[in-house]
């Protein structure tokens, strides 16, 4: 009896040691990978405060000069505002249209619905991509929307919407129909149901879509680059491209400082939205 207990303990001890070692090894690998990914971020935080930033990682020669120079640039701050305008504008279009379309797609039987969705999804990756650069430019030109935000918003929203509808439709599918039928029985109309039942339940999905859209637009270089002409309309992602020294070298002092500013709003939006709405999902109630 005691012998067997001892054996059992020994085996248990062996397994736990092996388990422990495996965990340590796994942790080490993760740390190395994590460090690799952290390096550019460290550069992003340190370089702006360095009097002579380079592309290598170095302990900065602390200064705030870079920011002072940046604020003297007439377009820098305005471009951040432009980026916000484009981001929030696209977000509003995408969330409103996306939610309505996804709800309809989820609830109404349309022949070949999944085909339509997949087709749109596939095409959308081309629309805002390099492949459609020339046609996009020509269409927007013939519409007379070159150098306007309307044109940029249309192209950006059009590119993002299919993916959004695809994601949101899945979300809406998971909301039991009985919720809406129940509300209907008490006299609620379609928009009332959308407001009282569908949107609150799909809220984490909508919050995710909103942030994701802003991040997409924020980092989008190509669309505003080809559709906007005036420097005072250009968003931050495009403006950064113009930071050269007189000798034609990339101006790392400006670029690094601007890059830090450029990444701040996205982070702030993320934390605010996460706090206010949270990425929770109610789903159905288990019964």
């Amino acid at each position: 009896m005691t012998a067997t207990t001892a054996t059992v303990r020994k085996v248990a001890a062996n397994t736990s040691v092996r388990h422990y070692l495996a965990r340590v090894a796994f942790g080490l690998v993760l740390t190395i990978v994590g460090l690799l990914f952290a390096l550019p971020l460290v550069w992003l935080v340190l370089a702006p405060f360095d009097a002579t930033p380079s592309l290598s990682l170095q302990w900065p020669d602390w200064t705030l000069d870079n920011f002072a120079r940046l604020f003297q640039n007439p377009y820098a701050m305005r471009s951040i505002g432009n980026s916000l305008l484009l981001g929030i504008g696209t977000m509003i279009i995408v969330v409103v249209l996306g939610a309505l379309a996804a709800y309809a797609m989820s609830r109404i039987r349309i022949p070949g619905r999944d085909g339509i969705l997949y087709g749109l999804l596939l095409l959308s990756s081309i629309v805002t991509g390099t492949a459609a650069m020339v046609p996009t430019f020509q269409i927007i030109t013939s519409l007379g929307l070159i150098n306007t935000y309307t044109g940029v918003l249309l192209v950006l929203a059009g590119g993002i919407l299919p993916t959004v509808i695809f994601i949101l439709k899945d979300f809406m599918d998971s909301i039991p129909k009985s919720y809406e039928e129940s509300a209907r029985l008490y006299g609620a109309g379609p928009f009332r149901i959308l407001r009282d039942v569908v949107v609150p339940i799909a809220r984490p999905g909508l919050a995710f879509i909103a942030i994701w859209t802003i991040v997409q637009v924020w980092g989008n270089f190509l669309v505003p680059f080809i559709l906007l002409r005036s420097p005072d309309l250009q968003p931050a992602a495009v403006l950064m491209y113009t930071f050269y020294t007189e000798s034609g070298q990339a101006d790392l002092r400006l670029i690094s400082a601007f890059a830090l500013l450029f990444s701040a709003p996205v982070l702030i939006i993320y934390f605010v939205v996460n706090r206010r709405y949270g990425f929770r999902f109610h789903g159905g109630i288990k019964s």
Binding site: P176, S178, Y179, E181, S182, A183, R184, L185, Y186, G187, A188, D196, V197, P200, I201, R203, H282, G283, G284, I285, S287
Partner: peptide, 28 residues
């Protein structure tokens, strides 16, 4: 449906998960 004077309890009860019990009962 809303104009028939009928109320229905669904098989899965269809309670709104984002509302508390009071709001659920008072939703109509």
């Amino acid at each position: 449906p809303g104009a028939r004077g009928v109320a229905m309890v669904f098989q899965d009860y269809a309670l709104f998960p984002h509302m508390d019990v009071a709001d659920n009962i008072a939703y109509p």
